[in-house]
Amino acid sequence: MTINWRRFLLIGIPMIWLLVFFLMPFFIVLKISLSDMATAMPPYTPNYTPEAGIQGMVNLWQAFDLENFIWLLEDNIYWLSYLSSLQIALVSTLFTLLLGYPIAYALARSPEKWRGLLVLMIILPFWTSFLIRVYSWIGILKTEGFLNHFLLWLGVIDTPLAMINTNFAVYIGIVYSYLPFMVLPLYAALEKMDDSLIEAALDLGTTRLGAFWQVTFPLSLPGIVAGCFLVFIPAMGEFVIPDLLGGSETLMIGKTLWGEFFSNRDWPVASAVAIVLLMLLVIPILLFQRQQEKAQEAAS
């Protein structure tokens, strides 16, 4: 009996957590997305009150429509936002990978006594608020910022570059902010690799580069996939970075959503945007999970 209780608690607690903090909010957002905008409090209709009873529920159900989702299809600002977000997230993920792989590789190959300290340095930025770190990039990238001053001093440029409020600044911000999420899973994958595999590859006549592409890289694929998802998924819905570093032409779904919510006070459309974004993200998340399962099967 005690074992059954413990089992129940073990499974029950995360289940209740997910129910209360994920599934119920999701259904609330879904409900709002099917509602209509109203100049009231809350700013949508219909509303359900317990006094209305079963008839109230039927009325509620009958008032639901897909109007907001159709609206998303009709106005191309949403589609452009999704596509632009997808592009920014994909490109940032690629650059994070290109930057993160050598870092993770160097970490994994560094002397063992240094590794703990080096990994600590990778996660050290988390000690500072994310918002402050993004703000500080404004100081670096703005027209009279550090980077422009430095480049002018070097003589590389003679007029300051317009970097702030561009997509370039958004890429910088995302790559910078999400780099640790790429480096850590890559490091975990590379670190557990047996050095003698590389030696065996060299022994059998391949070059160092050949050994990397034929042995190290394929064996680090689970780490690459994990890192890419950890960067891509939050980058897709990113709001703070495009809002602070991006310009008026920077189109990202997070910004669009914020605008619908706070500027237009159109909760139903904002909710529909969020539901579609969630659906777009669920597909890669499911892919990720399947990949993890496969990796686990291969390991056992």
């Binding site: 047996d194 003698s196 595999l197 030696e199 065996a200 060299l202 022994d203 059998l204 006549g205 391949t206 070059t207």
Partner: peptide
Amino acid sequence: PNQRPVNMMFQSYA
């Protein structure tokens, strides 16, 4: 190592 007429069988098999 990749140009030596020598091959090695590793303890861990690798």
